[in-house]
């Protein structure tokens, strides 16, 4: 299938300035592909974190690849706030659209349904709404006197994630990480890295087909064993806590981040197999 390519070509299919939807850790974060975006280097990306991000968004921000980020959090797990994200907030160098998890999920679901907007409970009185002019409050048309927040649909240019496997037809197995299905359907194009490519047709097995994203949504697939490292992949490998801790420590300063970045870019993909 012509959707198969190498990591550099997959990253090249995500143009500068693109709106890129990425999943939360540990549900298939495409870190090996992220490194190729940094290596290029990509510029002006508009990240949509579905609904939060970890080292992926933080490293992309630190490397100067990001113009704007919509997220409900950037956290390196138990190591706390993403340090480069926090620095960007202080400096005002990246446009931050603070959200809340179900709002991003709902806007993605509106995108996959082709809806213009979607209502969501809660939110009223939160400063999130005050700082999001794109979020509106309407009166429930079916029961007046009931204010409801409405959110514009999200149609990202690209959904980028990592999955356990693809078959040679380009179908991608995602297990129960169902948010990836919504992201792929909402996005105009989907780029996926996988641990392995298998010969059998994933859609022909009725017992597993429900956990598969059909090839029609998937434009690019690249092989990337341990491609979520240092984050984990459910059922395959756990997050590398020591590596995440080293990142969180190094990224506290601009200089520390720069040396971490140099080492990360120099690491051959083979290093991720250890």
């Amino acid at each position: 299938m012509d959707s198969f390519c190498d990591l550099a070509a997959l990253a090249a299919a995500i143009p500068d300035g693109a709106t890129v939807a990425v999943p939360s850790a540990p549900f298939g974060v495409a870190m090996a592909a992220t490194r190729e975006l940094v290596r290029r280097p990509a510029r002006g990306l508009r990240l949509v974190c579905v609904p939060t991000s970890s080292i992926q968004a933080d490293a992309l921000i630190g490397a100067g690849c990001v113009a704007a980020i919509e997220t409900s959090a950037v956290s390196i797990g138990e190591y706390g706030t993403g340090p480069r994200f926090a620095a960007a907030a202080r400096e005002g160098s990246v446009r931050i659209l603070d959200a809340t998890c179900p709002a991003i999920h709902a806007a993605i679901q509106a995108g996959m349904k082709g809806l213009p907007f979607i209502p969501l409970r809660g939110l009223l009185g939160s400063d999130l709404v005050a700082h999001r002019p794109d979020w509106k409050v309407i009166d429930n048309p079916f029961a007046p006197g009931d204010p409801v927040v409405v959110l514009p649909a999200l149609r990202p240019d690209v959904a980028l994630f990592h999955a356990p496997r693809a078959d040679r037809h380009g179908n991608v197995f995602i297990g129960r990480s169902r948010d990836l299905v919504n992201m792929a359907q909402a996005a105009r194009a989907t780029a996926v890295t996988v641990e392995e490519v298998v010969d059998d047709d994933l859609l022909q097995d009725p017992e597993r087909a429900g956990a598969v994203i059909p090839a029609l949504y998937v434009e690019r697939i690249a092989l990337a064993p341990r491609g979520a490292w240092p984050l984990g992949l459910p059922g395959r490998y756990a997050p590398d806590d020591a590596a995440l801790g080293r990142y969180a420590q190094a990224a506290r300063t601009r200089e520390g981040f720069a040396s971490w970045l140099a080492a990360w870019l120099a690491a051959a993909p083979a290093a991720e197999r250890t």
Partner: peptide, 17 residues
């Protein structure tokens, strides 16, 4: 906000839950 002195991760699902 937005150029806070100390930035925390974010609101997560709090504004809904």
């Amino acid at each position: 906000y937005p150029r806070v002195d100390v930035r925390w991760p974010g609101s997560f699902g709090s504004a809904y839950l």
